[in-house]
């Protein structure tokens, strides 16, 4: 308990009285929640508003523009929600990876001895950090839809088409018992088939990555700067090479400082991805909104959104916590 290495505060001595108080508080909170739920239920009933989660099994009836899972308008609401979660995870997962990459480069660039590199990186961080994300998303989307050519004059590179309708790519497809390649084809008014990266996805992905990488750059710079100059000099005195110094001395100490605030950035990226609807990307919130309006189950849909984001955030901080502990073991 009193070992000097322990980082947690030691627990208070055990007491029956405290246990009773805590039990009573828990019961009170539980009762309150139960009461509120019951009250809401009966008030809804009194007002003639249908409630309950049974609607999740009914057919959703609306189409969703993109998604990896197979889904058609005849499928149930829960499948539509699942596709929404998948879309949210796909765009935030890729944006997290991209922002880590850009953020690391920028963070290193901010510490560079080259004035130009340092200046460019500083300008980037200051610009992207100080413009609201919503505006960046709208600007990204407006730019993409303005710059890309219309369907009738789509840019063609072999079997790949690029237009306002997005990037259409050939994709392998399991059909009639063997693999075939599904090539996009140009029709009079449309480009059909193949896999599609839509401007909506690209705008959201770019917006989230560019915005978060500016914050990550600062987190990484701060982490690297937190390692004292003496450490570097000591490593040099021991005859370690530059690569060895970075790997064995600087990174292990810097990661400890970097990981917790980076976790915050990632978690806020996932939550910010709910701005998707402003650029027409069908994420969880967008699909829940449509479901809400069609089924009339407002409280249920909002609860599902809340729970999903809560779970995703908890999952992320759990994972990052594990990574942090590993990084610390690596250091010692």
């Amino acid at each position: 308990m009193s070992a000097p290495s322990s980082r947690r505060p030691s627990a208070a001595p055990f007491s029956w009285r405290n246990l009773c108080y805590q039990g009573a508080l828990l019961a009170l909170l539980g009762g309150l929640l139960f009461y509120i739920a019951g009250n809401v239920q009966s008030n809804l009933q009194a007002k003639g508003i249908a409630s309950g989660f049974d609607f999740l099994l009914q057919p959703a009836g609306f189409a969703i523009g993109e998604g990896v899972f197979p889904y058609t308008a005849g499928d149930a609401y829960w499948q539509a929600f699942l596709l929404g979660i998948e879309n949210t995870l796909r765009v935030s997962g890729l944006a997290i990876l991209a922002s880590m990459l850009i953020g690391s480069l920028l963070g290193l660039g901010r510490l560079s001895n080259n004035l130009l590199v340092r200046g460019v990186c500083t300008a980037y961080v200051e610009i992207f950090r100080n413009i609201p994300l919503l505006l960046q998303l709208l600007a990204c989307y407006a730019l993409l839809t303005a710059l890309l050519p219309g369907i009738d004059e789509a840019w063609q590179f072999g079997h790949i088409y690029l237009s306002k309708s997005g990037l259409a790519l050939p994709v392998p497809q399991w059909l009639d018992g063997h693999w075939q390649i599904d090539y996009p084809q140009r029709h009079r008014f449309a480009i059909a088939g193949g896999a599609r990266l839509t401007p909506e996805f690209l705008a959201l992905f770019l917006g989230l990555s560019l915005y978060t990488s500016a914050y990550l750059a600062e987190v990484i710079r701060a982490g690297l700067e937190s390692v004292g100059k003496g450490q570097r000099e000591a490593a040099a005195a021991l005859g370690l090479s530059h690569a060895q110094t970075v790997r064995r001395v600087i990174l292990p100490q810097a990661l400890r400082v970097i990981i917790p605030p980076a976790t915050n950035q990632f978690s806020s990226l996932i939550k910010s991805s709910s701005l998707a609807i402003t650029v027409g990307y069908p994420d969880l919130v967008s699909i829940a909104n449509t479901s809400l309006n069609q089924s009339g189950r407002a409280i249920e849909c909002i609860t599902l959104i809340l729970l999903t984001y809560l779970l995703l955030s908890l999952l992320l901080s759990g994972l990052m916590g594990m990574f942090n502990r590993r990084a610390q073991r690596w250091a010692s």
Partner: peptide
């Protein structure tokens, strides 16, 4: 087949 692009309001 078609692809819907869904926005929050009329303007968008």
């Amino acid at each position: 087949k078609f692809r819907s692009v869904v926005f929050a309001n009329f303007e968008a």
